[in-house]
Each structure stands twice: as structure tokens, then as C-alpha cells.
């Protein structure tokens, strides 16, 4: 634990964005998430940590209903986004996912140009009035993804030709282009080298000014570095949830302590 700089950042604006109550997730007969309650604040980075297979990614995917794509997955309980239940039958997951964007473990740019990758979301959601508008959105998103300077001269080049770190920042730019309110990140740095990881972490910190960010990570250092709130998952249970500083310095639950000191995981 040589890198335990705790993010000492103001968490003054604490308006709840997502509120999950009694969430249960089943994969066929497996009970993957057991009765999880969690409040995710706006303009805050919330980190989900825990050993592999603890259900943190599964829970993340319930927040924008990506689990709908898996046939055998069932979700029970309430997940409210701004007070509206996202599992309500009236809710169209397509509309939900425009509000709750997602960045994945492995950079997954589409086999299209850099421009088209970013323009994909705005195009399908009809966000741009005209070509100039779209150009604008693409530039703004790429800037927000902290990759604009590297790619501005080759927007027509295929996104798959970028380096791993650039690809992941492109994917982040792609996600923010649809103007989401929440950004879910599923181990966004696990496939990246340390330098690229640092760039992405810096970017995450910037994104906090505009979005509510939820990040799943297997690296406790990363959670400590980028998040204000941390949730610790173990065997499908939410063991402990609170201020990042408190979780890492003064955990209440013995399991949390065991994990952050490296005895389980």
C-alpha cells in the first residue's frame, strides 16, 4: 500500500442521482447480487471495489440495463434515476442508456473512422441539427475525452488504429458525446499500461465536473485515487459503502479491512 493518496476533494454537492433499493440479480439459478442498497451522488465519482466475481460489474450493468441483453438474467428491486424507476415497464432501455452511458473493460472502438465513432451516438439519438452542429459535438466530446489534440488531424483514420490508451479515451469521448447524465465505467483501465491509465484517471477526475461517474475497478489504489465514494462488494453483498477516505483508512466491517489490507481478494 505505497500509493494510498486519499482523494481529499470537496463532496459538497451531494444530490442523489441514482438510488438503488433492495436490488437482487439472478443468473439462472445463481443469486449474483443480494439485496443491495446504494445511493450514487451527482457530480461524484463512486468506485465499486471487491474481489473478482463479487458482483460489482454485474451491479454496474444493472444501472443502465445492459443485463437485459443476457437472456437468463433477472433483476428485482428498485433502481431510481432522478426518482424514476428504470425497470418500470414504461421505460425504454434505449432512452435510459442515452442518459446512462457506459465505458467497457476493453477499449471497443467500432471499425469506423474516429469521427464516425464519436458521431455514432449523436446520430442515432438525433442530437445534431446539421453537419456543423455534429462537427461541434464531435470536437467537444473529443476534447472532453482528452484526445482531441492527438487525433484532430486524422479524424478520418480508423479508430481501431489508435493505441490502447487512445482507444479507451476515444470510447470515453464516444460515451460523453450523447450527453449522458451518468457515466458507468467497467474497469476502464484494466487493459491499459500505466501511462495510459494515468491519463484516463486524470480524465475521470475532469468528468466529475459534469457527470455522475460510477467506476468498477479491481485496483484499490485506483479507487482511492479517483473516487469520492467507495462501495465494497463481497460475494454479491454490498459490505460497506461510504466516503472513500473513511473506507480506506477506517473500515467498519472486518471483511473490508481484510480486503484492503490484502488478506482476501
Amino acid at each position: 500500500m505505497n500509493d494510498m493518496r486519499i482523494a481529499e476533494r470537496a463532496t459538497s454537492v451531494t444530490e442523489s442521482k441514482i438510488s438503488a433499493k433492495g436490488v437482487q440479480v439472478y443468473y439462472g439459478d445463481t443469486h449474483a447480487i443480494k439485496d443491495v442498497d446504494v445511493e450514487i451522488d451527482d457530480k461524484t465519482v463512486t468506485a465499486f471495489i471487491g474481489p473478482s466475481g463479487c458482483g460489482k460489474s454485474t451491479f454496474l450493468r444493472t444501472l443502465n440495463r445492459m443485463n437485459d441483453t443476457i437472456d437468463i438474467c433477472r433483476v428485482q428491486g428498485d433502481i431510481l434515476l432522478d426518482g424514476e424507476n428504470i425497470y418500470d415497464p414504461k421505460v425504454d432501455p434505449v432512452q435510459l442508456r442515452a442518459k446512462v452511458g457506459m465505458v467497457f473493460q476493453k477499449p471497443n472502438p467500432f471499425p469506423k473512422s474516429i469521427y464516425d465513432n464519436v458521431a455514432y451516438g449523436p446520430r442515432i439519438h438525433g442530437l445534431a441539427k446539421n453537419k456543423a452542429d455534429l462537427d461541434d459535438i464531435v470536437e467537444k466530446s473529443l476534447r472532453r475525452g482528452a484526445i482531441w489534440d492527438e487525433v484532430k488531424d486524422r479524424l478520418d483514420a480508423p479508430g481501431t488504429g489508435l493505441s490502447g490508451g487512445q482507444q479507451q479515451r476515444l470510447c470515453i469521448a464516444r460515451a460523453v458525446a450523447t450527453e449522458p447524465e451518468v457515466l458507468l465505467m467497467d474497469e476502464p483501465c484494466s487493459a491499459l499500461d500505466p501511462i495510459a491509465t494515468a491519463q484516463v484517471e486524470e480524465l475521470i477526475d475532469d468528468l466529475r465536473t459534469k457527470f455522475s461517474v460510477v467506476i468498477v475497478t479491481h485496483s484499490m489504489q485506483q479507487a482511492a485515487r479517483v473516487s469520492q465514494k467507495t462501495a465494497f462488494f463481497h460475494l454479491g453483498n454490498l459490505v460497506e459503502f461510504g466516503e472513500t477516505g473513511q473506507i480506506f483508512t477506517n473500515p467498519i466491517d472486518p471483511r473490508t479491512e481484510a480486503y484492503i489490507t490484502g488478506r482476501i481478494g
Binding site: L81, D82, E84, D88, K90, V91, D92, V94, K99
Partner: peptide, 19 residues
């Protein structure tokens, strides 16, 4: 956070795309 639309009302864009 006041300018966002409710999830319960399906927007025209989504309705068209669902068709």
C-alpha cells in the same frame, strides 16, 4: 438538474427508432 426529460415519457426519436 431540471432540463432533463422524464424516462417515463418515450420521446419521438425513440418511438420512431422503435418502429
Amino acid at each position: 438538474m431540471s432540463n432533463h426529460t422524464s424516462l417515463y415519457t418515450v420521446s419521438d426519436n425513440v418511438r420512431r427508432r422503435n418502429a
